[in-house]
């Protein structure tokens, strides 16, 4: 009745030793990918943080800011280039759920910077090309359409922050100032256009991508509305705005009380 000691003579041991080697290899790779994903996420967040200091839209990023983002781009480049070996062929999708966090955050910083420079949404092909280049020695990292979309959702939050800060510091929405032709565009009109496109996407339910989209869709809508509310506050109170005044983002309850 002693079952605490398995018989060492089990004929299946060699078979299980082979399984163990395979499973260990899988587990080690999985951990490397997760680690890289975390590093890329952290570096991307720092880039976004610096980019939020930009004030002028549709212009090259000021040198003072590129100086502070450069080392983080370098980290991202280095991490993608080392981890790309673990994401080749069949492993690209096998570890997709482990690297998706990093890639989405990378997409967010990439598309945010692209927007600040060109006032446009970076195309999927363009973004895919950028990521491919980051892979080491001819081993490109694939950007999936899913990660692209999820990254764009996250970028909306950054545009919201950018717009609110700009309104608070300059009293207006950035963008569109120098355009003589066509209807002027600003951050809010761009946000609305993006919102329409994202809402138009018809994604049937089923795990896991649609679940992620559902979650981000709500956040995205809130972001657009925060900018709309901010602009409303700006218009309503117009020039009475004291310097450094921040538009209220959570509705107007407090204003009503203080008036």
């Amino acid at each position: 009745m002693d079952h605490s000691n398995p018989p060492p003579s089990s004929p299946f041991i060699p078979m299980f030793e082979a399984f163990r080697a395979e499973l260990d290899e899988h587990q080690d790779r999985r951990e490397r990918v997760i680690k890289a994903s975390r590093d890329i996420t952290a570096a991307s967040k720092k880039i976004i943080f610096s980019l939020q200091r930009v004030r002028k839209l549709n212009a090259p990023i000021p040198e003072s800011i590129t100086r502070s983002t450069a080392p983080h781009w370098q980290v991202i480049r280095e991490r993608f280039s080392t981890i790309s070996a673990d994401l080749q062929s069949i492993n690209g999708w096998r570890y997709a759920r482990n690297i998706t966090g990093g890639i989405q955050e990378f997409m967010e910083s990439l598309s945010f910077q692209y927007y600040l420079e060109k006032q446009q949404l970076i195309t999927f092909d363009n973004a895919q090309g950028m990521l491919k280049e980051l892979g080491g020695e001819g081993r490109p990292v694939e950007l999936t359409a899913d990660d692209y979309v999820l990254g764009v959702f996250d970028m909306v939050g950054e545009l919201m922050r950018f717009a609110i800060t700009a309104m608070a510091t300059s009293g207006g929405l950035p963008g569109g100032e120098s355009r003589a032709t066509a209807a002027p565009r600003n951050v809010l009109s761009d946000l609305r256009e993006l919102r329409t496109c994202l809402e138009m996407l018809d994604i049937p339910p089923g795990p896991p991508f649609p679940r992620d989209v559902d979650k981000k869709m709500e956040v995205m809508k809130t972001c657009v509305e925060k900018v709309e509310n901010g602009l409303y506050g700006l218009v309503v109170r117009g020039r009475e705005r004291p310097k450094g005044w921040m538009p209220d983002l959570e509705g107007r309850k407090e204003e009503i009380e203080s008036f």
Binding site: T123, L201, D202
Partner: peptide, 24 residues
Amino acid sequence: MADRHGMVNPGIFEDLQARVDQDT
């Protein structure tokens, strides 16, 4: 160019929708 396209190049989301539809 940029002005004519606006914020979003319409091809982007057409392409994304096509990918989603294929997967479906």
